[in-house]
Design a protein around this nucleic acid. Structure first.
Lengths: 102, 102
DNA sequence: TGTAAATATGTCGAATATGACATAGAGTAC
DNA sequence: GTACTCTATGTCATATTCGACATATTTACA
């Protein structure tokens, strides 16, 4: 993993599983986090592109502003499920999702 | 939604949210279920291609045989998160996932 | 500067997903 | 037949994720 990416993840508050050292992340753990980050980014892009506030998105997605903020921040407490449901609610197609994670 | 697909979903035990009528599924609900089904199928394909039993996959993914069965069945109790983590653990790349859901 | 809107962060009880277990069913070989 | 392997299904206690709320911080603009 490149240092820039490592710092990006560290900055998001991600902890290495049990080892406590980033370099010990297994490849699939890294992929998982990157996937989530990609969806987070996609969500934020979609929102800003449509000039919506987090409050407005929360209404559409039927959640709260704080959860939208956490989604966009890639918070460990949000699931890929929620990110996907939210993106779909904002009009993303499965193909859009595929593009986002490629 | 085509009848064939509807029956496929019904057969999996999916219930329409609260309405109780399949035709009332919103487009994003449909996309969500289809996404999950695509990942389920992908998981099963990967397992059979490598001639692994569900028990063996369970070991690799660190879960139980019953949960693997439910994943492959697209059971409503399994999350997209778990499907993705499992696919990654079996060696799928993010691109593979993208391909699966396209 | 102030101040109002937007966003971020922390916490909590409720809701959902989890692994594990038991057990049922399906398929195969003897 | 039964004995064995594999897969499916139901249940449960625990763990994780949820929406919601309060509050802090940032941002934009007068």
């Amino acid at each position: 993993m490149k240092v820039t990416k490592r710092k990006k993840l560290e900055a998001k508050g991600w902890k290495v599983g049990s080892a406590g050292d980033f370099l010990n992340l297994s490849p699939e753990e890294v992929s998982y986090v990157e996937l989530k980050l990609a969806l987070s980014t996609s969500l934020k892009e979609r929102r800003t592109k449509e000039k919506l506030s987090q409050v407005e998105v929360a209404k559409i997605v039927k959640t709260s502003q704080s959860r939208v903020a956490k989604m966009e921040a890639g918070d460990p407490s949000v699931s890929i499920d929620l990110l996907i449901k939210s993106l779909l609610a904002l009009g993303a197609s499965p193909k859009d999702l595929a593009k986002a994670i490629s």
